[in-house]
Every structure is written in structure tokens, then in C-alpha cells.
Design a protein around this nucleic acid. Structure first.
Lengths: 273, 273
DNA sequence: GCAAAAGTGTTTAGCTTACACCCATGA
DNA sequence: TCATGGGTGTAAGCTAAACACTTTTGC
């Protein structure tokens, strides 16, 4: 194959050669790399995200997504798992695997690197998406700090609902509204074809509880009969846990755990909006 | 809502406060940020990726994905579009939009930041995925440099086919095999539910040519009759371009352009392997 | 008993699949 | 004429949507 010879000069050598110096800080632009977290949960039939209040300029007093710098010796997934543990108490059993304790889920979302996204310096943020069951309160029992679960529709100022509880929410700091919107869209589309919705549920849950997760994330009403047939008819999706519960009222419902199947085929179809 | 008070101390202040200093290089670990490109095309019924030969240590002489440093004043998408233009001559009409000239496609793929992925220093690479029609040759007409289209199955050393043309390919440099595998999987899954496969085709193409793209990307054979009905029956997916061609032999085939519809619903089902 | 939620059965419509068959061109 | 790929028709089987209906609890 005529692909040039060993000693040829590469067009991109200008770029790659800079990588060659063992460590020459003047040879490349200095970046700070952070991880930001979109932590979603379902509380009382509403999709909520974890936000923290900023104590410093810029955007002082505004809500932001939790996050922090990537440390010198850690991988991006490790940094995200560490931040998640610090904020929620969810412990990462294996920082490399997507599964966390409590059946929670953590995955990389996207990276945001606009030169002006942080007015102070060049910051590239690797956003991650975490899905968690309904946790009692942000960092409950630990030291108090200004973190809360906020309704996603309030934070994004869309979908009709804003001004809940009489509070008119200010826009999120930095480009965090965009990041949150991307994370919500990722979650909404991914529960269509995967078993990810179970990450919003406790270890044992009923079919109705799982259906209410879908309804909260998608903001639609689903037919309980067809939903039941769909999820119980997909092999490996749900496995019976043995007991029943009446915590939702009505007739006792079977308890299930998430099965081993992670891909849902054929997918659960999201109704047209 | 009891969300703490204005002057409270935040648990993550330790992380966020460092962002507050206007520019203090000692306050955060120094990173280099690069973009690496997975550029895919379909040539002679095979999925191919663009690779360049490394001229320096480490991995000297090995093939790698094209890429380079993000400059101080450019966005991640701009950097990726610039690198793509330098490598292929595909000009980005709008660096922010995913669509490029020639109907090519560029999107962010994922970010790779293992502390030991580059032995010289801490490099975080924001990988991008580009899909392009069959280009004549890498940077043809420009200055010669060691770049080529390689069969994806050879680069990944899987799927049975290796040793093509008598050449036993060495593994890609760095973690680029992993990045390439992720990009290929993204492309394979995304053409299921989007019109992205048209990015592999020239501006005007026949239904059979589009089908051969699917067959090359998925590595399967599709029923020509059902495929034809599927793509021509989806409103907005294909629009007739007016003429016909016999460049594939046989009966003249209608020419189409990519329609405005970007989402394919219901999706094109990938056959079981 | 009544409300509420869990489940089951049934019908209809749409879609995929598999494959028989015809069409239009180049050699 | 024949090979080649383009394009249409059709019947079987699966799935989802819609909804009537029964079951089992708490109050």
C-alpha cells in the first residue's frame, strides 16, 4: 500500500510532536479538568436533580450541579464516583464499573469545553450522569450544607411548571442548565431500550412502582395493564423476589428485583408527546 | 425549604473554592486536553477508519487515530472540526453544528482520561466520531504524509478477518483501539434509529447503495425488498433527486437525497448476530 | 360495601419477515 | 438471451394499543 515511507514528515506532527516532550507546560495550553454530576432521582412522582448552592463568585448564591476537580492520580470515572459519594453517600463498589451500591447507576455523559464557560480560566468539564433511588435527603445525618433535590422542570424552566412552592428558581450557574438538559434527555431515551429505570427503584419494587418511574421520567401516563405485560413478559428483566407488599394500597403486589438483562428488546416505546 | 443559610460551609467547598482564584496553576493538577478522531467511511463494502502513523516515541511507527491539542481559544467541536479538515479536507461549514460539508457528520463520542493512558504526561482526550462518504484518499493532492484508510476489523483484530493483504496489523497506539471500538459501536447503533447512514453516502445515492452501507457497517446481509420498502416508506427520510443511475448495474435505480427527518421511527432493526 | 391498585383476557391494527414475482438495463 | 440489480405484492406471525373484566387488599 502506498502509504508513505518511514521517514516522511507528517502534517499533524506539529500537533503530535508537542506530546513528545516529557513535560513542558509551555508547549500546550493549560486546562483544568473537572467532573460535574447530573444526579437524578424520582421523588413523589417527579423527576428531581441534585443541586448545590454556590458560595462564591461567579454565580454566587445560584444553584449549580455538584462537581469538582479531577485529581492527579484518578480516572474520570473514579473522580465522578468520589464526588457522588461525597454528595449523596452512595458508595461506589467498583469505580470502573457502571453499577454502584444500592443498584444506582453512573455513566459518562458528555464533555463541555467552551473557552468562556467559566469566566476565570479554561475549564473542561466531563459531565457524568447518575441515577439513584429516592434518597432520604442530601447527605442526611452528615454535616449540613446547602444541597437539595430540585424538580427538573423547575430547573429547566420548561414544561409548564415553574414557580413551585412560590419560589421562582434562578437559572443554574455556568452552562449547567445545558448539561442537566442533556443528562435528562439521556435518561429519558435510555430507559426506552435498557433496564436502567430500575436504578431509580429500591432493591425490591413492584411493577406499579417501576411504572411510576417511567411516568415521572417521561412525564406521561402509561397503561398499567400493558406495562405489566411488557415488563413481566421480557425474559431476564425482572425476577420475582418472593414477597408481596401493599405499600401502594390496593391489592397486594408482587415484589421483584432487577434481572440480569440490561438491554430491553424490543424496547419500551415512549408515547408521542 | 430548609436548605441551609447564606453563610453556611459547603462540603464541596474544598473543591469549588479552588475554582475561585483567578488563575492559580498550583491549585489544580495540570492537564493537556486533546481531541482524537474516529473517522469512518465505507469503501468497497467494508467499514474503514482513518489512521495515521506515529513518527515519535512512544508507539513510534504504530498506527494511531488522528488528533491534536485543543487550542486556547477554541471549543471542543471547533478543535475536532479543524483536525478533521486538516486530515481529510472535509471543511466544516459550521463548527458548532453537527453537519459538515458533503453531508458528513461530526459528533462528540466520549472522553478518555486514565492517568496512565499517555506515559509522558496527564492527557485527557475528547474523542469525536466523524462519518464521511468514500473519499478518494487521505489528503489527496496535498502534501504526502502517512495516513490511510484501514479496515476496522483489521484494526480491532476481531470478527475473523485479520491479516488482509498479508499485513498483520499491530495494535493501535495508546488506548485508541478502545476509542475506535466505542466509535464503531456508536455508529452501528445510531444508524438503527437515525438517518445517519446517509452521511456515508454521496449527495445523491440509490436505495441499494444505502443498503450496502448498512450491510457494511453491521456486517450482515439485508433483504433488498424489505429494506427498500422500509426506507422509502418512512416519510421525510429520503426525497427523490429526480434522476436514475445504472452505476451498480442492472435496472436503473432512482436517485435520492437525504431528507430532513433525522430520527427513524420505528427504527431499522439490526438482525441478530 | 367501596375505593384503589394488581393482574388477565381479548380484539384490532400495524409492522416485520420471508419469499414469489415482475421490470429495465448492459453485455 | 441472460445475468444483474431494482422494485412490487402478499400472506404469516409478532407486537402494541385499547379496554372490558376479575382479584385482593385497607378502610
Amino acid at each position: 500500500m502506498p502509504n508513505g515511507v518511514e521517514g516522511s514528515v507528517y502534517r499533524q506532527a506539529d500537533d503530535y510532536d508537542r506530546r513528545m516532550s516529557p513535560y513542558d507546560p509551555s508547549a500546550f495550553p493549560p486546562f483544568a479538568v473537572t467532573v460535574d454530576l447530573v444526579v437524578l432521582t424520582v421523588r413523589r412522582h417527579a423527576l428531581c436533580a441534585l443541586v448545590v448552592r454556590r458560595g462564591e463568585q461567579p454565580f454566587q448564591g445560584r444553584w449549580a450541579l455538584p462537581g469538582g476537580f479531577v485529581r492527579d492520580d484518578e480516572d474520570l470515572a473514579m473522580a465522578a464516583a468520589r464526588e457522588l459519594g461525597e454528595e449523596t453517600g452512595l458508595c461506589a463498589s467498583d469505580p470502573a464499573a457502571p453499577a454502584l451500591a444500592n443498584g444506582a447507576h453512573l455513566e459518562q455523559l458528555a464533555t463541555y469545553g467552551d473557552p468562556r464557560r467559566d469566566p476565570r480560566m479554561r475549564v473542561v468539564s466531563v459531565a457524568h450522569l447518575a441515577l439513584a433511588p429516592d434518597l432520604p435527603a442530601p447527605r442526611a445525618g452528615g454535616d449540613a450544607h446547602s444541597a437539595r433535590w430540585a424538580h427538573v422542570e423547575d430547573l429547566l424552566g420548561q414544561e409548564g411548571g415553574f414557580g413551585r412552592d412560590g419560589e421562582q428558581p434562578a437559572p443554574l450557574a455556568f452552562d449547567h442548565a445545558r448539561i442537566l438538559a442533556d443528562g435528562v434527555e439521556r435518561a429519558r431515551s435510555k430507559i426506552e431500550y435498557s433496564s436502567l429505570a430500575t436504578a431509580f427503584c429500591p432493591a425490591e419494587f413492584t411493577v406499579g412502582e417501576l411504572r411510576r418511574v417511567y411516568e415521572a421520567v417521561w412525564g406521561v401516563a402509561l397503561d398499567p395493564r400493558n406495562f405489566h405485560r411488557k415488563v413481566t413478559g421480557t425474559p431476564g428483566f425482572l425476577v420475582p423476589a418472593g414477597g408481596t407488599t401493599t405499600r401502594q394500597g390496593g391489592r397486594p403486589a408482587q415484589l421483584f428485583r432487577a434481572g440480569g438483562a440490561t438491554l430491553l428488546n424490543p424496547p419500551m416505546l415512549r408515547p408521542e408527546v
